[in-house]
Simulated scan of single mutants.
Amino acid sequence: MKKIGLVVFPGFQVLDLVAATAFELANAAAQRPVYDVHLLSEGGGLVTSSSGVRVETERFADPAFDTVMTMGAMDVAPSTPGLLAFLNKARAASRRTASICTGAFVLAEAGLLDGRRATTHWAFARNMQQQFPKIKVQEDKIYIVDDDVWTSAGMTAGIDLCLALIEADLGVEISRTIAKKLVVYHRRTGGQSQFSALLELEPKSDRIQTALAYARENLQKDLSVESLAEVARLSPRQFSRAFRSETGQSPAKAIENLRVEAARIMIDEGEHPIDIVARETGFSDPERMRRAFLRAFGQPPQAIKRAARLRQVA
């Protein structure tokens, strides 16, 4: 059985404990006890979160775990020497070390991120880079894996991190099953931006939201105004007018942004030729995708692909 240590401290963010649920669901999906989850703290006993919710914990002892994961906090504060000492011991004795959200600051204080790529909540990323210049902070990533050290962005990105950990252990089907039970899309890739084209649109009505959700899940299909209007159960004219009113964009521009976002993720993963990326994300040909990338990023897909390769080597 894989022993999981979730590390908390006074003022931790209780949402990060969704990690415990992800591992619990993994046991259910695998139909066997794969993970043994322990909630840990320096002093043991009850620990109070930033919201005032108190959780029962075990005192630091044996540092040997399969995975030790540090929770984050709403406000970043210096860690205690005891916490940092335990994490260093656990790093040496365990298979994997991870953090959710600003838990990366705790790993950074312990020196566990020196020379590594890491991420954290976007609002704290630049501060982290300034405080810890030895870390290669990538502020616009959902999660990053650098050897056996995993870090994630803030809040719900911890779910993506846990799903990725579980997928590495048990396979993609188990991970998908858990995502369905958590009622989330199957995990976002690590290279995906913390910001989403859908979040920027923020439609107000259910009909426009439904059309956009359909578009994101069907990028390879015809996503003309007529087809999206049919999904929204509106006439093309009504749909175009409502869409622009609610999002500030034309349907064509919004679909292009969704396709560019999906293409950028595939390119950042570094595993797909440009023509395959264009086809999989609904661009009719690589040239059309190139023009869309120039409008969105000011550089072609090939330049972004080269940069992604350099990051992987660094």
Rank of each mutant, 00 (worst) to 15 (best):
M1I: 08
I4P: 01
G5W: 07
V8Y: 09
F12Y: 11
F12E: 04
F12D: 05
Q13P: 05
Q13V: 06
V14A: 12
L15V: 13
A19M: 10
A28P: 00
P33E: 12
L39H: 09
L46Q: 15
S51K: 10
S51M: 07
E58Y: 05
D62F: 05
P63Y: 05
P63V: 08
D66E: 12
V68N: 05
M69A: 14
G72S: 09
A73E: 02
M74G: 14
A77Q: 15
S79E: 04
S79G: 09
L83N: 11
F86K: 08
K89S: 14
K89N: 12
A92F: 04
S94W: 06
A98H: 06
A108T: 10
E109W: 06
E109R: 01
L113I: 02
L113P: 10
D114T: 12
D114W: 00
G115A: 06
G115Y: 00
T119N: 00
W122C: 04
A123I: 09
A123N: 10
A123M: 13
F124K: 04
N127C: 03
Q129I: 04
I142K: 10
I142W: 07
Y143Q: 01
Y143M: 10
V145A: 08
V149R: 00
S152F: 09
M155V: 15
T156C: 01
G158T: 02
D160Q: 00
C162Y: 00
A164F: 03
A164P: 06
L170K: 01
G171T: 03
G171Y: 07
S175R: 11
K180E: 14
K181C: 11
Y185M: 11
T189C: 10
G190L: 02
G190C: 03
G191S: 07
G191K: 00
S193L: 03
Q194A: 11
F195G: 12
S196K: 00
S196P: 03
A197K: 00
L201M: 15
E202R: 14
K204L: 12
K204A: 13
S205P: 09
R207D: 15
I208C: 05
Y214L: 02
R216M: 07
R216D: 10
K221E: 15
S224N: 00
E226F: 04
S227G: 02
L228N: 01
A232L: 00
L234N: 02
S235L: 09
S235G: 11
Q238V: 13
F239Q: 06
S240I: 03
R241E: 15
R241F: 14
R241G: 07
G248Q: 01
G248A: 04
G248C: 00
L258G: 11
L258K: 08
G270W: 04
E280L: 12
S284N: 14
M289R: 15
A292D: 08
F293Y: 07
L294M: 15
A296T: 09
P300F: 11
P301W: 03
Q302R: 14
K305Q: 13
K305P: 03
R306Y: 07
R306K: 11
R309S: 15
A314Q: 13
